[in-house]
Structures are given as C-alpha cells and as structure tokens.
Computed example of a mutant assay.
Amino acid sequence: MTTAGVLLAAGAGTRFAAPEHKLLATLDGRSVAARSLEALLDAGLDSVAVVTGAVDLAGALDAVGSDRHGGITLLANDHWESGIASSVVCATAWAALVGAEAVVVGLADQPFVPSAAWRAVAESSGPIAVATYGGIRGNPVRLGREVWPLLPHDGDEGARAVMRRFPEIVVPVACEGLPDDIDTVEDLRRWS
C-alpha cells in the first residue's frame, strides 16, 4: 500500500507574538518547520508534501536538503484562512494525485514528534489511525482513502469530526515522543 506523508503548515500562528512566524523560529539551530519536516522525511514514507499558506516556508524547508530525501512537494492552500480542514483537503487531493492509498497528516508546529511516530501510524491498519502519547490522542493521523470523502472542507477541525462520528473505525497507535505545539514565544523558550 502506498502511503503519503503531509505536514500541515498553512496557519497564521497568531498566538506567536514575535516578528517572525512560529514555524520560522529557531529551535536548537533549526527552524521549527525544518525539525518537523526532518522527522517526517526520516519516516521513509512513499511521498512527502507540505501544505503552506500564511507564510513562505520554501527557504526554511530547503535547509532540510530535499535532494537527500527524494524531494518534497509544496502545496499552496489558497483557503488557509478558512481553517485546518482546507489544508487536510489539500493533503488528500494531492495524495489521490500521487496514487496513495493512505495519507499520514501531522502538524509543522510539533517538532518533537519523532520519525518513529510517523512510521508507526503509517504502518497501522484501519481506516483511521491516530498517534497516542500516554493514552492521549495527538498527531500524526493516518487517513485511509475510504474516509477522505467524509472529511470536512472548511473549519478548524480536520479528521477529529470523522473520528467523533465513527469511533469504531479509529485505531489508536501508542507512540513515543512529545506532541507539544510551539504556539507561543513562551512555548519556544521552554524548549530552547
């Protein structure tokens, strides 16, 4: 089965009160977005894309060395302001174009989710698989092709709406790592 990985990176990051966007902020010498992308690339999925929107991430992502990993597709979400659902729709539309049977979706502002978590979720079965950390659901989430038509097209919920509606098709996957977001300058300082 072909599985694609997609990093969602389209939001404005309005809670990050700094001159730069939170995904461009430096954490241990690399941008938050680059750290997250490196983990996804190291998971070894068949294809990788990044959904962008509010900020140009091309320079930060180039630093990862896409040639080392066979390339990264940048997907521009022109409707990013409508919420995360539009980014998930971009992800599944691209996954369909590349012939993937499943897509694993994670967030670019979660730089402590390791490649092992991406890989474990990707290798799981079931229509939807969700990473859990200490029993609490987080990201990434694997979405089988059969659930793509059920996903909302706008708003601030992606797969969560489908998971609530059809809990019987959700497979939890215990993962190591931390699903902590970098949403504020204080979050960044705590990890720096």
Rank of each mutant, 00 (worst) to 15 (best):
T2Q: 05
V6Y: 01
L8Y: 02
L8F: 04
A9L: 02
A9I: 00
A10L: 03
A10K: 02
A12K: 05
T14K: 13
R15A: 09
E20H: 06
E20L: 04
K22H: 04
L23K: 01
T26Q: 05
T26K: 03
L37T: 04
E38H: 07
L41Y: 03
V48A: 11
V50L: 08
G53F: 05
A54S: 15
A54T: 12
L61A: 07
V64R: 05
G71A: 02
A76R: 15
N77S: 13
N77D: 15
D78F: 03
H79C: 08
E81C: 04
E81Q: 13
G83M: 02
S86N: 12
S86C: 12
V89R: 13
C90M: 10
C90V: 00
L97Y: 00
V98Y: 01
G99N: 05
E101M: 03
A102F: 05
V105M: 07
D109W: 02
F112L: 15
V113D: 08
P114D: 08
R119S: 12
V121M: 07
V121D: 08
I128C: 07
I128H: 08
G134I: 15
G135T: 14
R137M: 11
N139D: 05
R142L: 08
G155N: 00
R160F: 11
R160E: 12
A161P: 07
V162S: 15
R164M: 14
R164N: 14
F166Y: 14
P167A: 09
E168C: 11
A174C: 15
G177V: 10
L178P: 03
I182W: 03
I182G: 01
I182E: 02
E186K: 04
D187M: 01
D187E: 07
L188T: 04
W191S: 03
